[in-house]
């Protein structure tokens, strides 16, 4: 499999000043030493609870945020080494679909000028060619081109998300980060958008990173899944492996907490995890999960476990499965 993207020891820290007077700034490690590869044609799901850094990771990969440390190699070239012009040119190939279809479309722009914006920025062609492209892409995502003179607020959430997708796909990218792309939508509309994303992937040979907190959605759409907790990757495995064998206690807890849509199962579930997600500003020592982990040992409190390949292609960062 061709490597499209390599993320190496990526870190993204935020300095939080609690007030202007104090010189002691807290550091929020939103993404803390994250490494993974992404092969062409994959759909890599990233799951985790709020504050785990999945969204920051997605945006840093596209260099929408600056990094603190580490590398993001796209076809072998480091994005953060690129000059402004090179980066702008590369944006044609990597795109993003956002969570909130209400705030991710400029309310003052008509649909046509929202979709033709990327085409104009990257000098797609003559005005007539651009109009033609806008109409064809609107059809492709299932919005009647007849409505192109309308404003975003005149559409429903699902239709706005289609418009967001149309924009992202206008330049025929090869890599798209979907950040909670269906989370704000009603269930029946969510299914339509998931289908659309899958259709477009087949048609345009796309590679996705699919970030979501909804485990059912990620499990359905992804080929491989990364589980994150407080800025770190705790487990990576193919969808099938992860279903069969969840190695990290957090992964187990997360999946068991997810409500199943079968009332007959309700009393059979094991309840594992207790307590709250700790603040990412001052995470627990050692393995960040140890205060909530029923299997925590001494070493878990002292040292963060490395992410290790325990089975072929199945990584986990947990002391239960390795020696220090």
């Amino acid at each position: 499999m061709d490597k499209l993207l390599e993320v190496k020891n990526l870190k993204k820290y935020y300095h939080i000043s609690s007030n202007n007077m104090s010189s002691q700034n807290a550091v929020l490690k939103a993404v803390d030493d994250v490494s993974f590869d992404l092969g062409k044609g994959e759909i890599l799901g990233i799951v985790g609870e709020s504050g785990c850094g999945k969204s920051t990771l997605g945006k840093t990969i596209l260099r929408l945020h600056d990094k603190t440390d580490g590398q993001v190699l796209y076809h072998g070239d480091d994005l953060f080494e690129m000059k402004h012009q090179e980066m702008t040119a590369l944006r044609k190939q990597m795109q993003m679909v956002f969570q909130d279809p209400f705030s991710s479309l400029n309310p003052r722009k008509k649909i046509s000028s929202l979709i033709d914006q990327p085409l104009r920025i990257h000098n797609y062609g003559t005005p007539a060619e651009i109009v033609e492209k806008v109409e064809s892409i609107m059809e492709e995502v299932g919005i009647n081109p007849h409505y192109k003179k309308r404003f975003p607020h005149q559409f429903s959430g699902g239709q706005r998300q289609r418009i967001g997708i149309a924009r992202a796909l206008a330049l025929n990218p090869e890599f798209v980060v979907c950040d909670e792309a269906v989370s704000a939508l009603d269930v029946s509309v969510q299914a339509q958008i998931l289908n659309l994303l899958l259709d477009l992937r087949e048609k345009h040979d796309l590679t996705y990173i699919f970030i979501a907190h909804d485990l059912a959605v990620v499990e359905f759409i992804s080929t491989r899944i990364i589980v994150m907790y407080l800025g770190k990757i705790v487990e990576v495995a193919s969808k099938e492996d992860l279903k069969k064998n969840r190695l990290h206690p957090y992964t187990k807890a997360l999946f068991s907490a997810f409500p199943m849509t079968d009332p007959h199962q309700r009393d059979k579930k094991e309840k594992i995890v207790m307590g709250d997600v700790p603040s990412p500003i001052n995470p627990p020592s050692g393995c960040h999960f140890h205060p909530r982990c029923p299997f925590a040992k001494d070493i878990c409190r002292q040292e963060y476990p490395p992410l290790k390949e325990l089975e072929s292609g199945h990584f986990a960062a947990c002391w239960l499965h390795q020696e220090s």
């Binding site: 709020s50 907190h213 907490a257 409500p259 309840k271 995890v273 207790m274 997600v277």
Partner: peptide, 11 residues
């Protein structure tokens, strides 16, 4: 709420 918290509240 997050899923692990949701499970606790539903419980």
């Amino acid at each position: 709420l997050d899923v692990t918290i949701q499970a606790q509240i539903l419980d």
